[in-house]
């Protein structure tokens, strides 16, 4: 347990999420860290580090960015130390459709699309590395609680600003990678006391 994050029962989360609720979703949107393997394909990272099933990846995670570049080929895009993986469901609007994987409108974003294998440097295979992750919208709502129960790594000052210190009931904190704290929700696959999961409940 990290001393400054010991639980004291303050800032309790109410059934609707309580005062911490919006800020918790903020942490996940702004990004957290997990361990991945250098040289691992993006698809394998989503399976292994994020715990996503193939069906979920294909059916729900329609929009994927690696270092701000829209990705079409999850097998060609490769994890590198410090890279940023951002995941979203299908989005509205022409530009939302443009950003989807293998979109028929992909030419609209040709200048910024991820190039797959061709722009990857030789990676050191299977070496553990830090990967930054952002989850948005339905992916945040549906998958965020599972990840939080497994633990996500964040800077201590961000945790303090978001949900306060000492930690609210239902959370634990441990040392993570250097400079990061591993935050866990103790509720099974969920945020303590929250009615929905990471956002407005689906109607």
């Amino acid at each position: 347990m990290v001393d400054s994050f010991s639980n004291a029962g303050g800032d309790k989360l109410s059934a609707s999420g309580g005062p911490s609720w919006a800020r918790l979703t903020g942490l996940v949107q702004e990004g957290f860290a997990l361990y991945g393997l250098e040289g691992q394909s993006l698809r394998d990272f989503m399976r292994e580090a994020l715990g996503m099933s193939d069906a979920y990846i294909e059916g729900a995670v329609s929009t994927v960015f690696l270092d701000y570049k829209p990705v079409d080929d999850l097998d060609g895009a490769v994890i590198r130390p410090g890279c940023l993986v951002s995941l979203s469901a299908a989005m509205p609007g022409l530009v939302g459709a443009v950003m989807r994987r293998n979109s028929p409108y992909a030419s609209f974003r040709e200048a910024i699309s991820h190039g797959g294998h061709t722009e990857q440097e030789e990676a050191q295979k299977d070496k553990r590395c830090i990967v930054r992750v952002k989850l948005f919208n339905a992916v945040m709502r549906e998958h965020g609680p599972l990840l939080l129960s497994q633990g996500i790594m964040l800077e201590p000052d961000r945790i303090a600003a978001a949900i306060g210190t000492p930690l609210p009931d239902g959370y634990s904190a441990e040392h993570g990678a250097p400079g990061l704290v591993l935050l866990r929700s103790l509720a099974e696959h969920g945020v303590p006391g929250a009615a929905g999961a990471f956002g407005a409940p689906r109607p």
Binding site: Q29, T63, F65, Y68, P70, S86, S88, M91, P92, G93, V95, G96, M99, R109, I112, K134, F136, N137
Partner: peptide, 11 residues
């Protein structure tokens, strides 16, 4: 819902 996505794309 587009804000995060378009921001992430750098557009």
């Amino acid at each position: 819902v587009l804000t995060n996505i378009i921001n992430e794309a750098g557009g």
